[in-house]
């Protein structure tokens, strides 16, 4: 099996003594769509910062595309793993949108023409070409988020990592983001998202990792989000579709639908064919 990320027994403690990660062992498949779920302070962001070498393992190991994360491989990690921070204001700091998107490619040492091309492509991918000369601070939160994503896309990473990408986004921006992630994944990129949004994770991801207090509670397919003991222990809630299915007494389905549309189809077929009840 080809893995994009292999983490073995990872542990990390902050300088103030806070234990952020303990005994983390996970593997993320190449080309997969992985959602990391957990309550605030579960260690999701700290884990993501390990993926492109901002934090290095204090114990255990992190391998990205087969390469061990250490001081010597920092450059490789930053080229291969594009990390979009939770708050775009932490990431977008240049005087114009164009400058900010060009920041990453410039650090990769690319030729000016190549940088210009990549910036153009990235701005187009997130549909903010018309804001290229604008100051990021004059844009809306959703637009700044797109600038942050464009800044990472312009580096053309193999693995795209997003920390709470849905935070404070309106429905339209969420839809745009969903489309961007789908497009990047279809182009062969591994996409990893840390989120609280169980509905998004259930609908979008094909791999789920649930974390609690710095530990991995469970890893698997979306069925993980249908298991009551996991959901309770992680302090999460069932996705809306799962809640609905669970509310229909006696209904047993082979495969829980992932989206409202799939649920609609299921109900229509049940109505048409007669409900299958115990």
């Amino acid at each position: 099996m080809d893995y994009a990320v292999e983490i073995d027994d990872l542990a990390f403690r902050y300088k103030d003594g806070t234990v952020a990660l303990k005994n983390i062992t996970i593997n993320i498949k190449k080309g997969s769509k992985t959602a990391i779920l957990g309550h605030n302070g579960a260690g999701k962001s700290t884990l993501l910062l390990h993926l492109n070498g901002i934090y290095l393992p204090q114990r255990g190991s992190v391998k990205v595309l087969g390469v061990e994360a250490n001081k010597e491989n920092e450059k490789f990690l930053r080229k291969m793993v594009g990390l979009v921070f939770q708050d775009p204001d932490d990431q977008v700091f240049s005087p114009t949108v164009w400058d900010d998107v060009a920041f990453g490619p410039a650090n990769l040492g690319l030729a000016k023409e190549e940088i210009e091309l990549r910036v153009e492509e990235a701005l187009k991918a997130v549909e903010i070409e018309e804001y290229a000369d604008k100051m990021p601070f004059h844009l809306s939160y959703g637009q700044r988020k797109r600038v942050a994503i464009a800044g990472v896309l312009a580096m053309k990473p193999e693995i795209l990592v997003l920390d709470e990408p849905h935070a404070f986004l309106d429905p339209k921006s969420k839809e745009n983001l969903y489309n961007i992630l789908e497009k990047e994944n279809k182009e062969g990129k591994t996409v990893i998202v840390a989120t609280h949004d169980v509905d998004f994770a259930h609908e979008w991801a094909d791999e789920i990792i649930v974390m609690r207090e710095g530990e991995v509670l469970s890893q698997g397919g979306t069925e993980v989000l249908c298991r009551e003991e996991i959901i309770k222990e992680a302090g999460l809630e069932f996705p809306k579709v799962v809640r609905l299915i669970r509310k229909i007494r006696g209904l047993k389905v082979e495969k829980i639908p992932k989206t409202i549309e799939e649920a609609g189809e299921l109900f229509n077929s049940l109505i048409n064919n007669g409900c299958h009840r115990d």
């Binding site: 700091f93 400058d99 040492g109």
Partner: peptide
């Protein structure tokens, strides 16, 4: 500090390249 982390994650290594 968070801005600096974000810069590092985009390959910043101490030199600002002028475009």
């Amino acid at each position: 500090q968070r801005v600096y982390h974000a810069m590092l994650s985009r390959g910043y290594s101490g030199d600002m390249r002028l475009l």
